[in-house]
Amino acid sequence: MPQANVMMNVRRVNPTTSIIDIHGDVSAFAENVLMEAYAEANTPTTRTIILNFAGLEYMNSSGIGLLVTLLIRINRQKQRMYAFGLSEHYRHIFELTRLSDAIKIYENESAALSAA
C-alpha cells in the first residue's frame, strides 16, 4: 500500500476558527492524515473549520468520500466547513457533486476568515 502523498498543517487562527492547509493528494490514503488534522483543529470552542486547497495536487472520488465523512463529523459538532484555494477544475468537481452546497467556497483566506 503506497504512503499518503499529503501533508496537512493546522492553524488555530482564533478560538472559534481553525485552518487546515492541505499539500498533496486527497485520496483514500489521506484518511488518517485528514482525520488527525481535524482532531488537532477541533477544540471545544471551534465553530468553523476552513480547508485550504491551494496546495492540492490531486483529488479523486475516494478523497471526495473522505470530505463527506469529515462533513458528517463536523455537522455532528454543529460546526461549519469552509474552503478556499480550489482550482477551477476542482471547483467544478465541487459543483458537480454539490459539495459546494455544503462547503462554502471562498476566493482566498481573508475572505473565508471574514465570513467565519
Binding site: S62, I64, G65, V68, L71, I72, L96, T97
Partner: peptide, 24 residues
C-alpha cells in the same frame, strides 16, 4: 450519489466514481 443522503448517513460517503466519469 446524493450528497444529502450521504450526509444523513443513508448512503455510503463513497460511490462518486462513475458519476464523475459520466459528467466529465
Amino acid at each position: 450519489p446524493d450528497l444529502e443522503a450521504k450526509l444523513a448517513e443513508l448512503q455510503s460517503p463513497r460511490g462518486w466514481g462513475l458519476f464523475l466519469i459520466k459528467n466529465l
